[in-house]
Computed example of a mutant assay.
Amino acid sequence: MTAAAYPVGHRDNEDVVLLPFARSHLEGALKLSQEMSWPYRIEDWDVALQLGYGFVLERAGTVIGTAAWWPYGDTHASAGMIIVAKTAQGRGYGARLMDALLASAHPRTIALNSTAEGITLYRRRGFVPTGVIHQHQGIPRQCHEPPRSGLVRSMATSDFEAVAQLDREATGLERRRMLDRLIRSGDGYLLQRDGIARGYAISRLFGRGHVIGPVIAETPTDARALIEAALADLGRRFARIDTSATSQLGEWLEGIGLQRVSDATTMILGAQSPAAGPARTFALANQSFG
Rank of each mutant, 00 (worst) to 15 (best):
G209C: 00
G209L: 00
G209F: 00
G209W: 10
H210S: 15
H210C: 00
V211R: 03
V211W: 11
V211E: 02
I212H: 08
I212L: 14
I212F: 07
G213R: 12
P214Y: 15
P214Q: 05
P214H: 08
V215Y: 06
I216N: 05
I216K: 07
I216G: 11
A217F: 13
A217W: 04
A217S: 09
E218M: 13
T219L: 11
T219W: 08
T219C: 14
P220C: 04
T221N: 10
T221H: 13
T221D: 12
D222F: 11
D222V: 04
D222E: 15
A223V: 09
A223L: 03
A223D: 06
R224V: 04
R224Q: 12
R224K: 15
R224D: 05
R224Y: 08
A225P: 07
A225V: 08
A225W: 12
A225N: 15
L226V: 09
L226T: 05
L226E: 10
L226N: 02
L226M: 04
L226S: 06
I227C: 11
I227G: 06
I227E: 10
I227R: 10
E228G: 12
A229F: 12
A229G: 08
A230E: 09
A230G: 00
L231P: 07
L231M: 14
L231H: 03
L231R: 03
L231D: 11
L231S: 05
L231F: 12
A232N: 09
A232L: 13
A232D: 10
D233R: 15
D233P: 02
D233Q: 14
D233N: 13
D233S: 14
D233W: 01
D233G: 07
L234I: 08
L234Q: 15
L234E: 12
L234N: 09
L234T: 05
G235W: 10
G235K: 14
G235D: 08
G235S: 10
R236L: 13
R236N: 02
R237Q: 13
R237L: 07
F238H: 15
F238R: 14
A239V: 01
A239C: 11
A239F: 11
A239S: 10
R240Y: 01
R240C: 08
R240N: 02
I241E: 01
I241R: 07
D242N: 09
D242I: 02
T243S: 12
T243M: 00
T243W: 00
T243V: 00
T243N: 01
S244H: 00
S244P: 08
S244D: 13
A245Q: 10
T246K: 12
T246A: 14
T246I: 02
S247F: 07
S247L: 05
S247W: 03
S247V: 02
Q248S: 15
Q248K: 14
Q248L: 10
Q248C: 14
Q248G: 11
L249E: 04
L249F: 05
L249K: 02
G250Y: 01
E251V: 05
E251W: 09
E251N: 04
W252C: 07
W252N: 01
W252D: 07
W252L: 12
L253H: 03
L253E: 02
L253D: 01
E254K: 08
E254I: 05
